[in-house]
Every structure is written in C-alpha cells, then in structure tokens.
Nucleic acid binder design. Structure first.
Lengths: 162, 162
DNA sequence: TATTGTTATACTCTATAACTATA
DNA sequence: TATAGTTATAGAGTATAACAATA
C-alpha cells in the first residue's frame, strides 16, 4: 500500500491538479469581474438556479461545494445581504433552513454565465478532440461518484496502514 | 462565441471541478496531518526536491503553483522560518533569489509522500481502468500545456468578444 | 524601462468550538 | 441522542500597491 505511484500516475495527477488550478484561477477572475462574486458564491447560486423549486436546504446546498457548516452559513449570509437569496424555515423540518434564489440572484447568474462559458470553452475544451470530451466526461464522472461514496476520510477517522 | 456549452461539456466541467475539489480537500488534510504543511507549501517543497540542483529562483518556483509574487514571498518566508528551505542571492542574476531545499525539507517531503500517494491512489486512481490512466494523462497534459500557453488573460487584459 | 523580489496592508475564506433548537 | 444551523473567533491564504535593487 505504500508503493510509490508509477511515473505515469504521478504525471497524470500533477497535470490534473495544475490544469484545474489554472482553470479555477481563470474562472474565479471571470466570476468576480462579471458578477462581483467568488467562485464558491457563484457555484451556490448556480446550484440553486438549477433546481426546479429554486431552493435547497443548507445541507443540500453545501454538498460538494463547501466543507464546513459555518463556512456555508457565512457565504449564505453574504448572498442574502446582497439580495441574491432569501432564507426561511422549512415546513418539512423545523430544524432546516430553506435557501431560495431571488430574481436578482437569477439575473446575476445569467450575467455571469456567458463569459463563464467562454472561459471554460477557451481554456478547457479548446484543446480537446471530439473523442476526448466523452472520455474525459466519463472518467471524471466515475471519479466524482467514487469520491462522493468515500467515507469522509477525515484526519481523525483515518486509519494509518490497515 | 456566446453559445452555451453543450450539456455534455457542462457536465464534464462540473464533474472535473468537483472531483478535483474533493481530491484537493483530501490531500490538503493529509499533507497537514502528516507534515504540518499546507498543500501549496508541500507543492513548493516537492518542486524543489524534484530539481537536480535542489534550488530554484522565486519566479521559477512560483510557476503554476502561486499566482502572486507576494504570496510566494510569504510562503517562502514560512518555509524558511521552519528551516525547510534557505534563501540566498543568485550568482547569475543579482536581482534573483535562489530558494534551496534543506535536508529537513527533503525529510519532510519524504515523510508526507507515502500517505499522499496512498490518498491519491485510493481517491483518484482506484476507479480508473488501465485504459483510463493514459487517456486521462494525455488529455490533462494537453489541457495543461494549452493553459500554460495562454496569455495571462487577466481581467484587465481580457477582450470582450474579439 | 522592465524585471525580481519584498514589505505593508487589507480582505476573504475557512475551520473549530460552543451553542440553540428540533427530530 | 443525533441532526440542522448559527455565532464568535481565530488563523491562514491571497492580492494590491508602493517600494528597492538590478538588468
């Protein structure tokens, strides 16, 4: 289990991390320039906009975007202060908070999206062939699902070598 | 140019970003638990360790890891204070600072690496087939090289639609 | 003039722990 | 007891602008 990665694995890992770092940096700038939001805030809004009901509980909203409850509370507070979402109690579960995207929030997403798509296309998809797209999509979907299924693997839970 | 991404592109983009976000979070925790470093600090050390001379100028060191000079100065200062690197003038260019990894720095990298590799293998490579690895490596290498070749694309430089 | 790097500063993000309230 | 969320707080990361020194 302590075997080193093969050189090809290592190179692939590094290429993946650096590519996404560069892409993240680029879209972060675009989102901030076009909409005055951080990428995390944009992701949260985009997620809400993509929901039929246009609302999610805090826990649902956090999933995959933010890794601490307090962090999400903070970001949701900023979005609410900016008038892009509202927060209210859930009828189903009195403990839960329903976050709903406002018209302004939808407009903000719409204002950011075209430029965002342009950056992603120019940086990520431009160098890919027609064959690469489904291959990458298939691989990354599988990887994501695998990671989601993993136990949180928090440091405290982590077993050191079996 | 303002055409939306095709659904397959969008799904691929999201899967890529979420996967790497999860992976980044996991390795960040591993690096901090095993070596008391942030991922950026580990990347800087690993980069130095991978160099024949075991030293690079600040500018060379920054490349692809950090996006502001002051940020690198800050991180290099932390690494120096921890005794993991030393900084000194370059004989070739009096303006440049040569950053050299110390024995302690090399030992720190060595202490982190096995667990790091384990996390990467378990999270990223476990769900990949023998065919997927070269495919992903090829694609991400191409994407990275393409992004590196791009003009910085800073917001101020960015042209809006040709 | 352009480049390398540092400093000072300010801001954002994130995480931890303690807490309230509901299931 | 466990879960949903908030608050307060502290720490780390990052970026901007002004600066000094060398090419």
């Amino acid at each position: 289990m302590a075997d080193p990665l093969e050189p090809e694995q290592l190179a692939t890992y590094f290429a993946l991390m650096e590519s996404v770092s560069l892409l993240h940096h680029a879209v972060e700038q675009q989102v901030r320039a076009a909409g005055g939001l951080s990428y995390v805030q944009f992701q949260l809004l985009a997620r809400l906009a993509d929901t039929p009901e246009r609302r999610l509980t805090m826990t649902e909203l956090a999933d995959g975007v933010v890794y601490s409850r307090s962090g999400l509370t903070h970001q949701a507070g900023l979005l609410e202060k900016a008038g892009l979402v509202t927060r209210g109690p859930s009828p189903d579960d009195q403990r839960a908070t329903l976050v709903t995207i406002t018209e302004d929030g939808l407009a903000r997403v719409a204002a950011i999206l075209p430029g965002h798509v342009e950056v992603v296309r120019d940086l990520l998809f431009a160098p890919l062939s027609d064959k690469d797209l489904p291959a990458l999509g298939d691989i990354m979907t599988r990887v994501r699902d695998h990671m989601r299924a993993q136990p949180p693997r928090s440091v405290t839970t982590r077993r050191r070598r079996g």
